[in-house]
Structures are given as structure tokens and as C-alpha cells.
Amino acid sequence: MQIGVFTVGDVTPDPTDGRTPTEAERIQAMVAIALKAEEIGLDVFATGEHHNPPFVPSSPTTLLGYVAARTERLLLSTATTLITTNDPVKIAEDYAMLQHLSGGRVDLMLGRGNTGPVYPWFGQDIRDGLALAVENYALLRRLWREDVVDWEGRFRTPLQGFTATPRPLDGVPPFVWHASIRSPEIAEQAAYYGDGFFHNNIFWDAGHVRRMVQLYRRRFEHYGHGPADTAIVGLGGQFFMRRNSQDAVREFRPYFDNAPVYGHGPSLEDFSTLTALTVGSPQQVIDKTLSFREVAGDYQRQLFLVDHAGLPLKTVLEQLDLFGEEVLPELRREYAASKPAHVPDAPTHESLKAAAVAREEVPA
């Protein structure tokens, strides 16, 4: 099981004192969170991609390239790479470059995004969102797997004799997760290619998450990639901890109530009951997280949102220290003890390279 954290990079006022960090402070905070993730032994750090205030991570590969230079082991990923509004050629080249710079410590999570105005900013129509996701990814796969590409589609100019550079490290493209919280078409796309499916279940009830993951698993098997329970699944999550659960609820409540996404909506208690959010003691976080397997089956990646809604960096780092000390060892122990032998681990560059060598697709 890969366990990690992700950031959406929102610049949000702290509701307890009204202070809003500068963009520079927020960007440096994301770097500090990534470094803390490696320090406490997490596997993955992922950043979102947004092109509108109040968010700052408009260039994930720039951020991840900098983090790659400051870390040695951490797997670098995205919480969304916008497959709809980014040019597939640029995605292919940017993430291949990041592969080389990081020594293969990179994968990416493709999504359509949830901000309507971003489409016309990049010359697209939101009504074409699903068609863009399907066509752009089909091209991206070819750009990574074929040295010379001839291509013509609906949404970009044709390519004739085109070679994306640099080529993927060791001839092995980065592993791709397809992220969706509501679109069965994206679960179908992930299953068709045998890629990973990531459901960011911090906004949805267990029944919805179960239906989406089961759809992906059934279709993964249908397309001949293996039994349904061997499909590659990732889930989101969010926690806020103090050693005393009442202290956690009291401290986190103003952040929840004023959060940009779910603030001024359901109560903290109702939202915690319905979704993956856990506010309480370390043991409560352990128990709730382990219960996700009842919804999604044995899965391969668990990412937590830890820095949303104006939480100050000092508090986030305290949360990560507590997670590393009391939660992470227990999760690792439980996942290792209960994982069926036939369920694969999440792919890495080394495992993908080994599989390609075994198929004689790349030199040893």
C-alpha cells in the first residue's frame, strides 16, 4: 500500500485570525509538506493543478521537479493533471522530463478538473470535457509508446512524423491513474487501458464510492487485464487529529465551517459520518481509514488531504508528525497483514520496467 498526502494549494484565510498567506508563503508551505512527508516515511506527495484563484499550483511539474531535487525516496504525483485543457504533447514531454530528473519517481493522475471557466481560458468547451479526456489520453499514450507519431483528431492540429522528447525514462512511460468522483466514463477509460482508477472519496458517501470502484473493477476484468480484485485502485481521505478527539473537533470546526469547497454546508458531524473525513484521535483515524477496504476492497494507494481550508503550516506539520508516530506504523502493519497474496502492489517505475523487460519490450 502506498500511503501519502496531497495538496490542492488553496490560498485561504485562516478563519481563526483572518490572516491570508501570500502566494509565496503558500508555495513554500507545499514544499515543506512534501519534505515532511519524506521525513516521516510516507510514500507519495501529490499536488493538484489549478489555474484560478484561490489556488496556486498552476505548474505541477515545476513544483515536483523542485521537490525531486530536495528528496531521495518520495514518489511524486499529481492530484489532478488536466487532460482536458492541457495539450497532450506538452504533458508527454513535461512528465517524461520529470521522470528523468527524479530517477523515475513520478506518476500522474489525470482528471477533467472541476472549474468550468478553465476550459475557454485554454481554448476548449466544457461541453466537450469527456470527449477531450478520451481523445487526449489516447494521443498521450501513443506519444509515450511510439517514437514517431502520425495523428489527427478533433481537438488539436494534426501531427505528422512527430517525436516527443525526451523519450520516457528506460522506455517506460509513467504510470497513469484516472481520477473521477462522479463520471463512470472515466472509470471505464481506466479499465479499458488497464490503468489505475483513483476515487477522491472526500466528498462522497460510501455507497457512491463503492459503485464507482466496483464498476471499474468489473470492466478491468472484462477487458482482460486480470481478475477484478487485482485492479489498481486509489482512494482519497482527510483527517485532523489531536490526541484527545474533543480537542480535534473544537480546533478543526472553524476551518471546516469556512472551507472553500464544503464550508457553509453540512455540519462537521454529518460530513464526517457520510464521507472519508475523520476528525478525532489517532486511533479514530486508523479505524476509519482501515474501514475503506469494506467499501473499495483491497486497494493500492491512500492519499490524504492535510493542508486545506487555511490551516497554518505549523499545524499541518504537527498533524504529519502525529500521523508518522502513531497512525502510519499501524496502517502499514494492518495492510501488510491483511493483503491477499494475489493482489498486486501499486506500480512503480522499477516494477513497470521489470515487467517490460520480461515482455522483451525494453532492454534489461
Rank of each mutant, 00 (worst) to 15 (best):
L82W: 00
L110N: 04
A96Y: 00
V44C: 06
R142D: 07
W144N: 11
T61Y: 00
E93D: 12
S59E: 15
N136M: 12
S59G: 08
A37S: 13
K90T: 07
Q99V: 13
E39V: 04
R145N: 01
D150K: 07
S77R: 05
H50W: 13
A92N: 05
G48S: 07
I91L: 10
L74G: 00
A34Q: 09
H50R: 14
G153C: 15
K36Q: 15
T85H: 07
A68N: 01
V56E: 00
A79M: 11
G129M: 15
A133P: 02
W151V: 01
L82E: 01
Y137F: 14
H51V: 04
L108F: 15
L143W: 05
T81E: 00
A37F: 13
N114I: 10
E146R: 08
A131D: 12
P53E: 11
R127D: 11
T84F: 00
L35K: 05
P88W: 08
T85S: 05
L130C: 02
L74P: 00
G48M: 01
R73N: 12
M97S: 15
A34P: 11
D128Q: 06
D87Q: 06
L35R: 01
D150E: 13
I83V: 12
L76S: 03
H100Q: 11
V106H: 08
A79G: 09
G41Q: 13
A79F: 06
I91N: 06
K90W: 14
M97D: 08
V148H: 15
P57M: 04
T62S: 03
L108K: 00
A79W: 00
F122Y: 06
E93M: 12
E38S: 11
R70A: 08
A133Q: 14
H100L: 09
P60V: 10
R70D: 03
T62H: 03
E152S: 15
A37L: 05
G48C: 01
M109V: 06
N86R: 14
E93K: 05
I40K: 13
P117E: 06
F45Y: 15
Q99C: 08
A46M: 09
H51I: 01
D87S: 11
F45D: 01
R141C: 05
V106D: 02
T62R: 04
S77Y: 06
W151M: 01
G123L: 10
G48D: 05
M109G: 12
T47C: 14
D107Y: 03
R127W: 04
